[in-house]
């Protein structure tokens, strides 16, 4: 998936991937896609929960080996 910005949270645990995501999204333009790289299995559930709560769009997860890639689109409204 094409992303406008990527943040690397490999090796970081809850709540850091969520906090870093929130910080990154704040700096991005509406409609842009953020890619989060992580290896904490908690992000599989935490990222959709964060997106739902904040009104941003959870686009999906890709997993290759132990690396988890999460995609989120910044809310337009």
């Amino acid at each position: 998936m094409e992303a406008d910005r990527t943040i690397d949270c490999v090796g970081l645990y809850c709540p850091m991937p969520i906090v870093r995501t929130a910080q990154a999204i704040k700096e991005m333009e509406p409609g842009q896609v953020l890619e989060l790289l992580a290896d904490d299995p908690g992000v599989r559930s935490d990222m959709p929960a964060w997106a739902e709560k904040t009104g941003n769009e959870f686009l999906g997860i890709e997993e290759v080996g132990g690396e988890i890639k999460v995609y989120v689109r910044k809310a337009v409204s």
């Binding site: 809850c14 709540p15 969520i18 906090v19 995501t21 929130a22 964060w50 709560k53 904040t54």
Partner: peptide, 11 residues
């Protein structure tokens, strides 16, 4: 503080 930081990150 884990919860506080997560809550703040969730708006």
């Amino acid at each position: 503080f884990n919860l506080a930081n997560t809550g703040a990150a969730m708006g």
